[in-house]
Design a protein around this nucleic acid. Structure first.
Lengths: 192, 192
DNA sequence: TTTTCTTGATTGACGAGTCAATCAAGAATA
DNA sequence: TATTCTTGATTGACTCGTCAATCAAGAAAA
């Protein structure tokens, strides 16, 4: 155990434990003790750092969002053409890092939580907006505005759809074929 | 209150109450008392008829599945061409009856529950299989086998995707534009 | 020592499930 | 007809377990 600044380490460990607990369980009904146990600490400590369960869950979701954002940003950095940008957005969403069963199950669970929690919902809206604008940044150069908007909606729905199907281990649960199907739509769309 | 055969009436009332409670709440954390209260009875009676909460939830989901199946069956009855069959499947999934906010929220909540409950998951697999075979019954006459399979997977994912986005009141939450976007994909796909 | 960490034990709320008791009404009996 | 049975429907009150949150106090570091 290093001495200085336990706080960031503990917070991170608790967030990771939250993701894996939710991912394994498939729902948010994990207890603070279970999460804390996975992180190797007591439930009291989790409360010490996060105050309430709700806050821990929000922090976890923010972390997921941040990770996705970072992956996306670095990947888009080397995408030059509009067409590349579209493919990059798709590829990142189905990258092995983002499409882990654990992560996907957590997303789904948070989706449900967002129904009740306004602040959780706000986070999802941020995510949806960013996805939309990233897609549009490529599509609007390739299609008339109305078509680009429709395509962005469709691609976003497909991504969510494949995520949910993955969570149930139904359909093409592997990232590669899911990504290929989305790409296929893009091709059809651009082929006029 | 007629005395004869309260059972079917109560069971139905409790199932309806479950759907509306879950729909309003957006999650499965509704209590037996809340559900029973909505149905105008005591929680003890709900237990009397269904035994445990899990059973009530399963019965509710079975009811939803049955309704969807019935809608689909009657609609497919007057779909003659393969192309019609595809459109009918899409139309029914986005019909005002199936795409009610209440129903959609319930679906999403059950999706999550299926992660934990094997019997719940089995029900979803039934649903997925039926959707798939209904889509294939039209598509396989219109496309080479491999393409038809890909299209069916894609359409299924799009439907799920629009459902989830509707639950969050994000994207095109109205059934009409969602259905149009799916139809649009079908058109692109068939236009070779 | 003073401050930062960390925990075991405890509390208070809440919810599922159980149970004994009531109610209403039709059937059987006198 | 009047008077017991019988039975399904229904409930309020209770038990039992679970879990988030708190707290007082001990260990470790500064």
């Amino acid at each position: 155990m290093p001495k200085t600044g336990m706080e960031p380490l503990r917070r991170r460990a608790l967030i990771d434990a939250t993701i894996s607990a939710i991912g394994e369980r498939g729902a948010l009904d994990v207890t603070m003790s279970q999460i804390a146990g996975r992180a190797g600490v007591s439930s009291a400590l989790a409360h010490h750092y996060f105050g309430a369960k709700e806050e821990l869950l929000q922090a976890t979701m923010r972390h997921l969002l941040l990770e996705l954002g970072a992956d996306l940003k670095s990947a888009l950095h080397q995408a030059n053409t509009p067409r590349d940008r579209v493919s990059t957005v798709i590829a990142v969403n189905f990258s092995t890092h983002q499409f882990r069963a654990e992560t996907v199950a957590a997303w789904l669970a948070f989706y449900v939580e967002a129904q009740k929690s306004p602040s959780m919902r706000r986070l999802f809206i941020v995510y949806a907006r960013r996805l939309h604008s990233n897609l549009m940044s490529g599509l609007s150069a390739l299609l008339p505005r109305a078509d680009a908007l429709a395509a962005a909606e469709t691609i976003a729905a497909m991504i969510d759809g494949f995520y949910i199907r993955r969570a149930l281990k139904d359909g093409p649960s592997d990232a590669v074929s899911a990504a290929r199907l989305v790409e296929n739509y893009v091709e059809l769309r651009l082929a006029r």
